[in-house]
Computed example of a mutant assay.
Amino acid sequence: MATHLITGAGSGIGAAVAQRLLERGDELWLLARDAGRARELAQRFGGARTVVGDLEEPERLSWALSQQELPGRLDSLHHIAGVVELGGIDELTPKIWNSTLAANLVAPAELTRLLLPQLRVARGHVLFVNSGAGLRANPQWAAYAASKHGLKALADALREEERGHGVKVTSVYPGRTATPMQEKVHSQEGKEYDPGRWIQPGAVATTLLTALDLPGGGAEVTDLSVKPVA
Rank of each mutant, 00 (worst) to 15 (best):
P180A: 12
E110V: 15
S66F: 02
K191W: 02
L158E: 08
N130H: 01
G190E: 01
G36L: 10
P174R: 08
L135E: 14
P117K: 09
V221H: 09
N130D: 05
D34L: 01
K95M: 14
A102I: 05
S131W: 03
S62Y: 11
D156T: 03
K191H: 10
S66Q: 10
T112C: 02
G10P: 06
K184E: 13
A137D: 06
T222W: 12
G47W: 11
A107W: 04
L151W: 07
E192Y: 09
E183C: 04
E161I: 13
T100C: 07
P71R: 09
P195C: 00
P117H: 08
R33N: 05
L116I: 11
L208T: 03
G87K: 02
T210C: 12
I13V: 13
S131H: 06
A9E: 00
L114S: 10
S187N: 14
L65Y: 01
T3L: 07
L154G: 05
P228W: 01
K227Q: 14
H4D: 10
E91L: 08
G88D: 10
A64G: 00
A205Q: 10
P139S: 12
W141Y: 11
G8E: 04
G150W: 02
S11V: 09
A81S: 12
Q182R: 05
T170G: 05
Q140S: 13
T177D: 09
E160T: 12
E161K: 12
L209A: 09
D156Y: 08
Q200N: 11
R176H: 11
V167M: 04
W198P: 08
G150H: 04
A142E: 04
G88S: 13
H4G: 08
W97P: 07
T50I: 08
G72R: 13
D194Q: 09
A103D: 02
A48N: 09
H165A: 14
L135S: 06
A102T: 04
S147T: 03
S225N: 10
L30E: 00
V167G: 06
E56V: 08
D90I: 08
Y193S: 00
A143V: 02
R44K: 12
A219S: 15
D54F: 11
E161D: 14
S131G: 06
A81T: 09
L86I: 10
Q67P: 02
T179A: 07
